[in-house]
Each structure stands twice: as structure tokens, then as C-alpha cells.
Amino acid sequence: MLHHLTVTAQHSPELLERVLRVMRHRGFSVQNMQMNLDSDNQQVELHVAVASERAIALLTAQLTKLIGVTAVSLTDRTAEPKLAVV
């Protein structure tokens, strides 16, 4: 099943590795990804499509725990964010 996530986080050099590692390890395959950095290089917004047979809540709970991650939201293709996890 495909899920669309938006992850907002404080920028750090290894942030992308942290987020992607959790996705892989928890059983979610990245299908599509876009990363935006704000103008003063402080904040990152990641838009990621992940596929898995596992419940998406298992992933959002783990991403939410990462130090520096400030918000994780789940969207579908037609709707605005409907679940603010943090």
C-alpha cells in the first residue's frame, strides 16, 4: 500500500540518512521523494511516498521519535494533511 508522508525537521547533515534508514528498517520502501530546504538552511521538508504492507502508523511513530523531527503528517493525493502526528 502506498502512503504519502511529509516530514518536517531541523536541518542537519545526516538528517536524510536518519529518516531513510528508519523507513527501510521498519519495512517501508521509498517510491518517490522530494526534499526542500528553507532559505536559511534551518528547516527541511521531505515529501516521501512509501510502500509497505505494514500499518503506516508504525512508521510515523518511529519517525516522530527522531531527535530533530518536528512534524510528521500523512496525506493522500487528493486531500490536505489529515493527521498531524507531532
Binding site: 508504525l58 511513530a61 516522530t64 521519535k65
Partner: peptide, 8 residues
């Protein structure tokens, strides 16, 4: 204390 353990 760890919300990620709930329902895991």
C-alpha cells in the same frame, strides 16, 4: 513513555 511501542 514511548508512544512507538503502543500498538507496535
Amino acid at each position: 513513555i514511548d508512544a512507538a511501542e503502543l500498538g507496535k
